[in-house]
């Protein structure tokens, strides 16, 4: 009796399994599975595996050769590492200054270019061009522009009579961060401009037409129609901009190497220097400590992103 019951359950299970297979085939689940496989595979190999590896080395003093177990020493060190905590502050300073310039600039340029004026396609291309150039390359160009001796910028300001002696744009702690931000804005605003343009193109023309018929001027159209309807897109752009700004470090490594006196050291330039070394400095390779800082920095960025997402929900409620 029991055996018959078991057989029946097994058959049902078998049938169910077969049915599931058939269903999966009909639903296209296999295609989905195979299509997802390369991404999942790459994610595991190049992202999750190194991440697990990272967790191992946080307890070690490791310079790429031999790892010495140090327990929680790396964590204790973080608390007293003024260079790191200053680099966190520099990261925020850099991100805030970059964002308050780059986003309004990109938005204004996008709105102007969406007016279908003559030559707007040309300007679209020109403004977007920096995005396709490597950060290391354009940073090198700016290195020459900012050069104190015979630099383009100093030459221009000197000719105009604004300065009487060369300014050390990248070598002085007073000007280095601002110079870095100028480069970051130049290199990044084309990208946000394109994103804003695509957002603008999704706003129906008849909404503008009705507003114009109702007698709205350009300024009120921008604030009452364009900006609210851009809301969802703005939310995504802001999130991208915040996380990108917090992670930027390439141009900093090229332009100042984090100097002078760590004035332009941001979280990831410091971590990069600890993990891979840096031509500009003599810091010894400390992969274990770099791993701890990477995790803490990732947490900081994660927390900021979550806070932003919470706040941005209100953007949806507003409009």
């Amino acid at each position: 009796m029991n055996e018959t019951k078991k057989e029946g359950t097994a058959l049902r299970k078998k049938m169910n399994y077969r049915e599931k297979l058939m269903n999966a085939k009909n639903n296209g689940s296999f295609s989905v599975f195979f299509m997802m496989m390369p991404s999942v595979f790459l994610l595991c190999v190049v992202s999750i595996y190194p991440f697990l590896w990272l967790f191992k080395y946080v307890f070690y003093d490791y310079n790429g050769f031999i790892a010495y177990f140090t327990g929680f020493d790396n964590f204790k060190r973080v608390l007293n590492d003024s260079i790191y905590w200053n680099s966190v502050l520099h990261t925020f300073e850099y991100a805030v200054l970059k964002l308050i310039i780059i986003l309004p600039l990109a938005l204004v340029v996008a709105v102007l270019l969406s007016q279908k004026l003559k030559g707007s396609n040309f300007y679209r291309g020109v403004y977007f061009l920096p995005t396709v150039i490597s950060a290391a390359v354009y940073s090198l160009i700016f290195y020459f522009i900012f050069a104190s001796y015979n630099g383009v910028l100093n030459g221009l300001l000197s000719t105009l009579g604004i300065i009487d002696r060369p300014v050390d744009w990248l070598g002085s702690s007073k000007t280095a961060m601002n110079s870095i931000i100028v480069v970051a804005v130049w290199g990044g605003f084309g990208n946000y401009m394109i994103l804003f343009l695509s957002g603008l193109s999704s706003i129906p023309e008849d909404v503008y037409e009705s507003a114009r018929i109702d007698g709205a001027n350009r300024l009120s159209i921008f604030f009452k129609i364009t900006l609210p309807l851009l809301g969802p897109m703005l939310k995504v752009i802001l999130m991208l901009a915040i996380t990108t700004a917090l992670k930027d470090y390439e141009s900093i490594l090229v332009l100042t190497g984090g100097g002078p006196n760590n004035r332009t050291q941001v979280m990831f330039s410091y971590i990069y220097t600890l993990c891979f070394g840096n031509d500009s400095t003599n810091t010894s390779i400390q992969i274990g400590y770099g791993a701890v800082l990477s995790i803490i920095s990732a947490l900081i960025i994660g927390i900021i992103t979550v806070i932003y997402l919470r706040i941005s929900k209100k953007l949806d409620d507003l409009y």
Partner: peptide, 23 residues
């Protein structure tokens, strides 16, 4: 002896101290 100080290398730290607005 090769050591890993908990801070900048001496070459970096001493150079920073050489600068006018250094520590």
């Amino acid at each position: 002896p090769s050591v890993t100080p908990e801070g900048p290398s001496y070459k970096d730290a001493l150079w920073s101290a050489c600068l006018s607005d250094g520590p």
